[in-house]
Design a protein around this nucleic acid. Structure first.
Length: 281
DNA sequence: GCGACAG
DNA sequence: ATCTTGTCGC
């Protein structure tokens, strides 16, 4: 019997990592996830409402979490990232970090350490890191209005990258932010572009488009940072995870970047994951 | 067979 | 992702 996806995420266990799953099985599960995903706006978040003006100062530790910070009516953006514990003997474990931000301030942190069941395989990242990410998100008291994941969403061979995988299982709007391109082709060369520049990333032969008629732009290359005289920073590759369109995805990421290459939610989650890893080690 | 590949 | 010091350039 074919697995079906419950919008509320009840069937999520079927889409979590399982050492017994074959590559082929994982790939077909991804096709189901892509079919269940929505690559159009269904969130009601105005990018301007989540814009972050000042970057967090991470030189002296993480910012304190203030649960009462910001306007309680403002959208909550949650950044998720991971670090890894690799003992010489024994199993690898993921240290997942989730950081909830509202009006530019951190209102909550949550982390989780989870054993990893399968190795990293390009295209199957979510089956390695999805479970750990969900574990950290489960520890959050705050309900996310938007998830910002490390890695791709729709920019994926089967249009089901980790941002889509997690977004669909939780049925929460999500976007994927990757530092390198998994597949697809940018419309223009991405070399030496100024901050704010963007170009569509279109599906190429390596992408199985669920909807050949409308699917062409699966994400964007977006230049979030550049140095004054040398143009050597690579762009970000952003793509819809779930319930966000490609165009809005770029707008949201642009609003969440505050001077650094990575959007603040993932930048802070990255620092938090490293700190949590230190404590665990 | 060769190439290419998020974290 | 991770192993790692200094170092070149904002």
């Amino acid at each position: 019997m074919a697995p079906s996806i419950d919008p509320a995420g009840v069937a999520r266990s079927e889409f979590l990592p399982d050492p017994a799953l074959s590559r082929t099985e994982m790939e077909s599960l991804q096709r189901e996830l892509a079919a269940a995903a929505t690559f159009a706006d269904d969130h009601g978040i105005d990018p301007a409402a989540v814009a972050i003006g000042e970057p967090a100062d991470l030189t002296d530790g993480l910012p304190d979490a203030r649960s009462e910070a910001g306007n309680s009516a403002s959208p909550v953006v949650v950044g998720v990232d991971q670090a890894f514990l690799t003992p010489d003997d024994g199993e690898d474990r993921a240290v997942s970090a989730a950081v909830a931000i509202r009006d530019g301030a951190v209102i909550e942190y949550a982390s989780a350490t989870t054993p990893l069941s399968i190795p990293y395989v390009p295209g199957l990242l979510a089956f390695r890191e999805g479970e750990p990410m969900l574990a950290a998100l489960d520890g959050l008291e705050t309900e996310p209005d938007l998830l910002v994941c490390d890695g791709s969403g729709r920019i994926h061979f089967r249009e089901a990258g980790v941002a889509t995988h997690v977004g669909v299982l939780l049925d929460v709007p999500s976007v994927g932010v990757a530092k390198s391109l998994l597949c697809g082709a940018p419309d223009e060369s991405t070399d030496e572009r100024p901050v704010g520049w963007r170009t569509p990333v279109r599906a190429d032969d390596s992408v199985e488009t669920a909807d050949p008629d409308t699917a062409s732009t699966i994400g964007h290359a977006y230049q979030s940072r550049q140095y004054p005289n040398s143009r050597r920073v690579n762009p970000l590759y952003v793509s819809p995870g779930h319930r966000v369109s490609p165009a809005t995805t770029v707008e949201l990421v642009e609003a969440l970047c505050a001077g650094y290459k990575l959007p603040e939610p993932t930048r802070i989650a990255d620092a938090y994951a490293d700190a949590a890893k230190r404590d665990a080690a």
